[in-house]
């Protein structure tokens, strides 16, 4: 089986305080080199808190941002130049905010049609048929096509966003917090739709979220990110119940759960390191109760812990 998506040492550094000419004053490493493989038909969950680099990673995967280093391979083909149109046929993006991802001044038909016209140069009758097909599969009525985005609720707008992604006929979808703007009762509608579409069209998903429970519910494997780096990858069944990285353990222990007493999670602080002036060693060390002098000095690399669980930690949790 070929991998649907393979990332090799993909990283992104943003310059800060760039003058008109000459080099920038400093760099922020939004994503540190990430190497990952996603199999066809798999859902890889990516979790992390705000500022961990998960959205930057996602934007690189679809060509919206040019990686600083590394390589992206989609279905065996290398994509080196950041050209969203080239990526668009292979991989599509579903945005977090369903309303702001739809141009308020375009009808739904024009929005969903664009990828058919621009990416697949489809004729008008062919388009009508294809749109009808897509709308049926995302449970939207065709009469919606002539309306404008502001007439829809968040859940409907998100389904329109999914329809647009499907119209590009890409086999991989990057779902960037697709349900976090929605209420729980609507959230499940969208998640279940995504699950069905995946089975129907044999899609591959990258599911990005800050909500551990949602990620666990929809993913095959999960990658945990902290401060721009993947700190642990494992199967959805095991990663939160038997975490090896202390950060994963902290995350899993922090989520409020019915029936668990309220105890402050075991951690020393909540502050992230200063991104402009990052100390050497493990980024999590200042918050970690297991940190030793080694952690301050040397940045841990991802190591195989179990069969299919990798963690970047010098002193993994047993």
């Amino acid at each position: 089986m070929t991998a649907a998506l393979r990332l090799t040492d993909l990283s992104k550094t943003f310059p800060v305080g760039k003058p008109l000419l000459g080099p920038p004053k400093a760099h922020v490493r939004a994503v540190r080199p990430v190497t990952l493989e996603v199999q066809t038909g798999e859902t890889l969950g990516i979790v992390g808190e705000s500022g961990c680099g998960k959205s930057t990673l996602a934007r690189m995967l679809v060509g919206l941002q040019r990686p600083t280093t590394g390589q992206i391979e989609i279905e065996g083909r290398a994509f080196d130049n950041a050209d969203p149109a080239a990526f668009g046929r292979m991989i599509q993006y579903v945005f977090q905010d369903p309303i702001s991802s739809l141009n308020p001044r375009k009808s739904i038909r024009r929005i969903v049609e664009t990828p058919l016209v621009r990416l697949h140069s489809m004729g008008s009758s062919e388009r009508t048929a294809r749109i009808a097909e897509i709308f049926a599969s995302v449970n939207l009525r065709e009469e919606f096509l002539d309306r404008f985005p502001h007439e829809f609720s968040g859940g409907q707008a998100q389904r329109i966003g999914i329809a647009r992604a499907l119209a590009a006929n890409a086999r991989i979808l990057v779902l960037d917090e697709p349900v976090s703007a929605l209420d729980v009762s609507v959230q499940a509608q969208v998640l279940n739709l995504l699950a069905r579409l995946k089975r129907e069209f044999n899609l591959t998903y990258l599911f990005i979220s800050h909500d551990l429970a949602v990620v666990e519910a929809v993913s095959d494997r999960v990658a945990v990110m902290y401060f721009g780096a993947v700190v642990e990858i494992g199967t959805a069944e095991r990663i939160f119940t038997a975490p090896r990285h202390p950060y994963t353990k902290l995350l899993a222990g922090s989520a409020p759960v019915v029936g668990r007493p309220l105890t402050p999670p075991e951690a020393k602080g909540t502050e992230l390191p200063d991104p402009l002036n990052q100390p050497p060693g493990c980024a999590f060390a200042p918050r970690c109760t297991r940190a030793t002098e080694l952690c301050q000095r040397e940045e841990p690399r991802l190591k195989r812990m179990e069969d299919d669980q990798l963690a970047a930690c010098h002193h993994p949790v047993d």
Binding site: P84, Q92, Y93, S100, S101, L102, T114, P115, R118, L119
Partner: peptide, 12 residues
């Protein structure tokens, strides 16, 4: 805005 990103991904 995200719809501009979406338009780029749609090949515009």
């Amino acid at each position: 805005k995200e719809f501009v990103d979406a338009a780029r991904l749609a090949g515009m």
